[in-house]
Design a protein around this nucleic acid. Structure first.
Length: 208
DNA sequence: TGCCAGGCCCTCTTTAGGGCCTT
């Protein structure tokens, strides 16, 4: 695994909580290598339960579409191979982490690598943005979209472009030559006011 | 029938409450 490979993932689900019985209905993932998108994964997932009209309206994914979709165990086994040991990223990662771990547990698999959250990072490096929802922050940074949101691959792709954009902005603002996953993960756990000082110190330490 | 998430973050804070995010 390269130091700079990151897998951005996104789930569409039947609801907000796997602990309350909610299931994944679509998974999308985009691989970033050397700061560019290099591979993609997408599949609908048959949750073996009906989705509410709210979810059908929100995602555009209907019960009819899901009836023909492959079951979760089949999709998740394929995804485990794709996921390999890449670092993981998601927008509001605590949500996707819960569903990933829940679906992995059902196939007796587990995740070894860590997550970073693009929303927590964007709150720190774009503190003046009016909102840090994925759609808002994409518009705020004027990132090109195809207009599709709330589908797994489209949202994973938008999150990947946001991730690349944040790295490029940090390089431009602080003169950093590289911005590895671990640095962004550390920023995401840091108090907002400490981030600029910390990044300046990183630049100084790298200069030796 | 009745239940209905969870983590982060700010503030009128820590003996708490509520908005933001994700579907």
């Amino acid at each position: 695994m390269g130091k700079y490979s990151v897998l951005v993932i996104d789930f569409e689900t039947t609801g907000l909580s796997p602990d309350n019985g909610d299931r994944a209905i679509e998974i999308g993932a985009v691989l970033i290598q050397n700061n560019h998108i290099s591979d993609r994964f997408q599949s609908l997932i048959n949750p073996k339960m009906r989705v509410s009209s709210f979810i059908a309206d929100y995602t555009g994914i209907t019960n009819q579409m899901l009836k023909k979709a492959p079951p979760a165990d089949e999709v998740m086994h394929r995804f485990v191979d794709f996921m390999a040991d890449h670092h993981l990223v998601a927008h509001n990662a605590s949500f996707d982490k819960r569903f990933l771990d829940s679906e992995l547990k059902r196939i007796r698999a587990s995740r070894k690598q860590e997550f970073a959250c693009s929303m927590l990072i964007s709150r720190r490096i774009y503190p003046d943005a009016p909102s840090h929802s994925l759609q808002s922050i994409i518009q705020y940074r004027e990132i090109q979209t195809n207009g599709q949101f709330h589908r797994a691959l489209a949202d994973a792709e938008m999150t990947a472009l946001l991730w690349i954009n944040m790295i490029n902005d940090l390089k431009a603002t602080y003169g950093l030559s590289s911005v590895p996953f671990e640095l962004l993960q550390k920023i995401s756990r840091m108090s907002k006011s400490l981030v600029p000082k910390y990044l300046k110190r990183v630049v100084e330490e790298r200069a030796g």
